[in-house]
Design a protein around this nucleic acid. Structure first.
Lengths: 212, 212, 212, 212
DNA sequence: AATGAATGAGGGTTCATTCAT
DNA sequence: TATGAATGAACCCTCATTCAT
């Protein structure tokens, strides 16, 4: 009962709610890491956000740094899911890129998802570091593939594709530095605006309207 | 003599080298903060980078947090200088924006300047925080003015100007997350490429070449 | 078990021994502060006296200075108790004063009580400082009341009552500067002797024997 | 010139003002030690009180602890001088005691003298400690001699003489804990009042007026 | 599963002391 | 003589982690 009431009220009573609790934990950690950085976040902070005491966290993770690792993994799960939903055929490279970016940015701004994206990888174990980088590279490789498709099909016009992609990802990722829920624009509106503008920066025909 | 050899060999012997030492200190701090974050950086780290012992730093700053504050101030000095050099007349809003962004990004990537841009303001004292934010807002206000000029003179075409500016700044600022000196492209080439692309995202006529 | 053996063997096993531990902590702190002063006392000193490591102390106090504050509060609790036991009626002012002083000095010299009396209030937080001073003033006000009663009922003869009280309290308080357990006189004997003499200094009839 | 203006304006220009400077130093140290304790006093504090920088102090003393030692020695010089001025013949023990105490307390409260009396001897070197204690014991021995004389000549009536003396010294010494210049009573008035009362506590005939 | 207690390993800061100027 | 600079040694305090309950 006491137990059921805790964990941010996100957790129903039951047997295998362990994975649910883990999810809540990763989310709380991600929020805290995003706000104060890895080194600026205390395990006490995270525990308090969950209505739990610090020692309890060790039932779910071995380390503080493992917590960071899991956050990155969860984020990569999201990006994997996003790219999986892009149809292979019937879309130009530009359209594919736009869909991917839109899904990505919405996830970034959404309360529910693991909204940690790329915080302080330097705090990771070497072994964990390579995994995180590998999966991120994979996501970027997919996006880069879309750019190259666009160059090939004429929907995209740009200089170095990698440089162009990084610039775009910058515009996207930076959003979470200044976006605060409750501002004048909602997350959907923002995502659409930012993505449209970024896509425009490499569109062969910038004035052709692109539907989200 | 011993003294002359330290401080990263950046410091010539002389009477008023105090301010030079302070500069070297701020620079070393900025580099460290950028790499590992404020909380992830030790005063020992910074001192070691200068070939000095930790306690010595306290001759030049009262606090670790004052070090962060001074870094931010130094960065704002740079942005102030950049905007000061933009001529008031004879340029479109788009051109002014491009020049400012180019100067800014070059400073960001250059070894010599204070290359801290916007790291962990949450670690600042409330009083220092407002100062930092105020000066940053001022820089952004100038840039926003350029955007509005561009909208007025027809050189820029975009939705909400503030949103557009933030997206662009994201593309710019993010660069320092992935740029490493010694890579395939030099800082000048990168700055030009990134800025041109970002500017293109709001240019009324995206295909008109813009000289840097 | 390990736990039970520590804390100066003062602590029995049990559930609510937290308050007992706190008491032992305050006592150890008081002893150390008395001997070496606040600034001359290390948290390591206090921890060592309890057979505990320094970091453990932070489970019971937030600060070193809070430790000082708690010691003062404990001392004031003792003085409150002492004055509470003086009957209102049936005694001359001089007799009341003597009883209070005797109880006070016995507490001062006793091993068991918090034997800190007035050490380095200057190290206290402003907020804590006013509390400490307020309670001490209250004790002195009670004693001063006894003196004035004595002047009224003819049992006391003196010049300025406040000055007289301060002189007496000096004679009492100073005792803890030189008294060492195990000397030729026991605490009871000393307390009686000192108090009798001090009381004599303002007694209207100094030669009338006063029973302790 | 700059030099002449410093050192608390106490120091005229000249060749052998070293000893004068030393005197000013000891005085400043004594004041600081009295107020904040030995460990609570910084060499910077003392230097600042003299309008001098910390490193300068090392031209006059080897150590911080030597400073404490010198203060104690200066205080003992004062007490030596006081007892030297008590005439051997023609006075009762009680009268001698009173004169000594009066001189002592006036010195204690006076601005000019080294007003350190017995602060934190525990911070002294063992060697210095024995010297300090020896000279203090000597002073107390003289006073104790007066008490014994008084017992012999009938001017004093008390129990254990040493205990009685300690009680009296307590009343005297404690004064500097609460006395603040500028209060309702001047130092002369206070000294007289306190001493008269303390002397009364052991006078054979308490009501015989004693002139200061 | 949850937590109070304990602690080792730092990290920031102070400060007495030394030294070169 | 006076002082700015530098530093070793502490000290207070935090925090991730372990363990017994």
């Amino acid at each position: 009962m006491a137990t059921a009431a805790r964990w941010g009220a996100l957790v129903p009573t039951g047997r295998e709610l362990r994975s649910i609790r883990e999810g809540a934990l990763y989310h709380a950690a991600a929020v805290a890491f995003l706000k104060n950085g890895y080194h600026g976040t205390t395990l006490d902070d995270i525990a308090a956000a969950l209505g739990v005491k610090k020692a309890t966290l060790y039932h779910y993770v071995r380390n503080k740094q493992e917590l960071l690792f899991r956050c990155h993994m969860a984020a990569s799960d999201v990006t994997d899911e996003i790219t999986r939903q892009i149809p292979t055929n019937g879309l130009t490279g530009l359209e594919k890129l736009q869909r991917a970016l839109h899904g990505y940015l919405e996830a970034l701004l959404g309360e529910e998802s693991s909204n940690l994206i790329m915080i302080e990888e330097s705090a990771l174990t070497p072994e964990n570091y390579v995994q995180v980088i590998a999966r991120r590279d994979q996501f970027q490789a997919v996006l880069l593939g879309f750019v190259k498709e666009g160059l090939a099909d004429g929907s995209i016009s740009t200089g170095d594709p990698k440089l162009a992609l990084f610039a775009i990802l910058g515009g996207i990722n930076w959003t979470q530095k200044w976006y605060r829920a409750g501002g004048p624009w909602g997350p959907g509106k923002i995502a659409e605006g930012i993505v449209r503008q970024m896509v425009r920066s490499i569109a062969a025909d910038p004035d052709k309207a692109l539907s989200a």
